[in-house]
Design a binder for these strands. Structure first.
Lengths: 154, 154
DNA sequence: CCAAGACCGTTGAAAATGTCAATCATTGAA
DNA sequence: TTCAATGATTGACATTTTCAACGGTCTTGG
């Protein structure tokens, strides 16, 4: 069965094949693009997407435990240890004992951490604006909505 | 400015914060979910998403060069070398000289490779169907369309 | 109360992935 | 014909991912 190239009509590329309708493949590639843009925007601030995400969550009012960070970012708990170690060594976050559970640490941004988060977040926003340049507001919302369902099933 | 939690009204989770409207973050997490599902579906066939993607492209009529594979999959050329090496060692693909450019190799699936691709692709499709269970046909097409624009800018 | 099992953070190691520089053969163009 | 650019390869290194094991703490059922 010779497929007849069913990709849209934009005719820019050399007639992609089957894989180009594959959500997983597109997801992987889009993520690679986004990740590269994110890291590029963050490198000036000494952060990467990983550490930025931790910092972002620590800077909000969530007071996440490391386990929560691991679940949210879909990381192994041991990775969170390393990330928090690094941010803590730089004085950007602190581990505070969870009053309700002495096993758990609550990760919270310091003043320096919140300050850095502020400027880094702005850089990230600019980077993303560029990435989503051709998307209308509705399209962005649609994309976010669809991705959210994929990212948080159940 | 205290933001008032503007995520949808599904009220399933504990009121996510700002990050949950971030396309990059959602993209990363959705990709992680999809990647895990893909690898889970493929492990029974001795493949991972990476090698499967190469095999898939080699099994079509594209006859991609390694450079093309690198660009499509957004990999470093050296990674493609390793992937093709492995698939070739297993007799699933072959390197054939590009008649138009003696520097280039065209990667093409063997009969065994196409056979394995057939069953692996079926497993992947089942895995993805599960992943996209709650998505209507229109929504899948929308998602694919939006992701494609993000994945292939320009 | 208390023992058993689950859970949190941590450590350490292994595999997979990503990134970079250098090299050789070939190509395309000045 | 020369020369810069390209395709594949190698080797090195950093980052990310995935596991298994462990000590301290919680929780639950007896």
């Amino acid at each position: 069965m010779i497929s007849v190239d069913a990709n849209g009509g934009d005719a820019t590329g050399p007639a992609p094949a089957d894989l180009f309708d594959d959500v997983s493949f597109l997801l992987a590639r889009a993520n690679a693009v986004s990740l590269a843009a994110g890291n590029a925007a963050l490198t000036a601030h000494g952060l990467r997407v990983r550490s930025y995400s931790v910092l972002a969550l620590a800077a909000e009012e969530r007071r996440p435990s490391q386990r929560e960070l691991a679940e949210l970012l879909r990381l192994d708990p041991s990775q969170v240890v390393a990330l928090v170690d690094e941010l803590q060594a730089r004085g950007l976050v602190a581990r505070r004992p969870d009053p309700n559970d002495r096993r758990a640490n609550v990760v919270i941004a310091t003043d320096d951490g919140r300050a850095l988060y502020g400027v880094a977040a702005e850089a990230v926003r600019r980077g993303q604006a560029e990435l989503l340049e051709s998307f209308s507001g509705d399209e962005r919302a649609q994309l976010a909505g669809l991705l959210r369902r994929l990212a948080f099933p159940g």
